[in-house]
Write a protein that binds this DNA or RNA. Structure first.
Lengths: 171, 171
DNA sequence: CGACGGCTGGCGGTTTTCCGACATCAAGCC
DNA sequence: GGCTTGATGTCGGAAAACCGCCAGCCGTCG
């Protein structure tokens, strides 16, 4: 065990309600760096989210505002500063995710091809699963080449609901 | 490769002359964290030493002063703040090193015994070799149980000279 | 005898390597 | 339609390798 550690990045988090259950919002140095659902795979330990604060503290109000508009079907493109921490490859994948239009879907292979690595579809799946900011970075818009849901950190059922909602199903 | 890295610890270094050749002094956050000789084993890459500054900048003058006194035979115990970064075990070993009196020597096994791990003598040798602050943290005062020099990051010849000097040989 | 040299086996922390597991997909072959 | 194979990046854990050691055992040689 190393005895010196990295305590320089100031993290804080808040928890808000949503149609998909409680969402944990994490901010690093005042910029949104995480959005996690309950029971989500690869969700970091709660201790790593820093101090819990009220959702009224910056930068959370603006995040909550846009999320509410999205869930109301009135917002189709988030406009928020993000702090995405990961490997170069992961960041390149996440950068592509935000280019997938609302209501549309890509396959893992398509996304891999856009990166110039047509064979990296499997690696794309992995990086997708590590997306730290669910919903806002729309990893749910990536599905199997033959239309299968194949997987979702927050559970495939949530993925189905998100896609159906974006497709216009309002039941 | 990770794309976010640790740039929080401000490192700087200076190079000074000595009877044992040039010494590279490294400071982390204004505290001495390294002293390396030329050709030393396990010496980190020079890039990791940060910007090179004049030996007149803090905290180096005090370090140089005490080193000069040591090489003149007038100082037998350094009194400097140190920043020793390593594993728990390594730090426990280095903590013992500074307790070896000037002119004295311990065996690797003796040092291991002081840690309550009488069988860890070999691991002590390893940790000894990783000592980041040569001379001031006197890893040269540890020798084989049967008196052999067995090894030294800066070369066994330097170890022999250091020990002879501390024993009072002034030729 | 005793001192000394060389071999051997076991010791323990750290580093390196390796392997499997995955939110895939196309091609090739039944 | 099914089933196998290979390419891909990351992570976690297992295993092995690396050593600034040391005690015990056995020779050899004065």
């Amino acid at each position: 065990m190393r005895s010196t550690m990295n305590v320089n990045t100031a993290k804080r988090h808040a928890v808000v309600e949503s149609p998909y259950g409680p969402l944990t919002l994490v901010a690093t140095d005042g910029v949104l760096s995480g959005l996690y659902m309950t029971g989500q795979r690869h969700r970091p330990a709660d201790e790593s989210f820093g101090e819990r604060v009220a959702a009224e503290e910056a930068p959370f109000p603006e995040v909550v505002r846009q999320l509410a508009a999205y869930f109301a079907g009135e917002l189709t493109a988030f406009d928020l500063p993000l702090r995405l921490e990961g490997t170069d490859f992961q960041r390149s994948v996440w950068d592509q995710l935000v280019r997938i239009p609302y209501g549309d879907t890509w396959s893992y292979g398509e996304l891999a091809a856009r990166l110039g690595k047509p064979n990296a579809s499997r690696a794309v799946g992995l990086a997708n699963g590590k997306n730290p900011v669910g919903i806002i970075v729309p990893c749910h818009r990536v599905i199997g080449a033959s239309g299968g849901m194949t997987g979702y950190g927050g559970g495939v059922d949530r993925k189905v609901r998100l896609l159906a909602f974006e497709a216009g199903d309002r039941d």
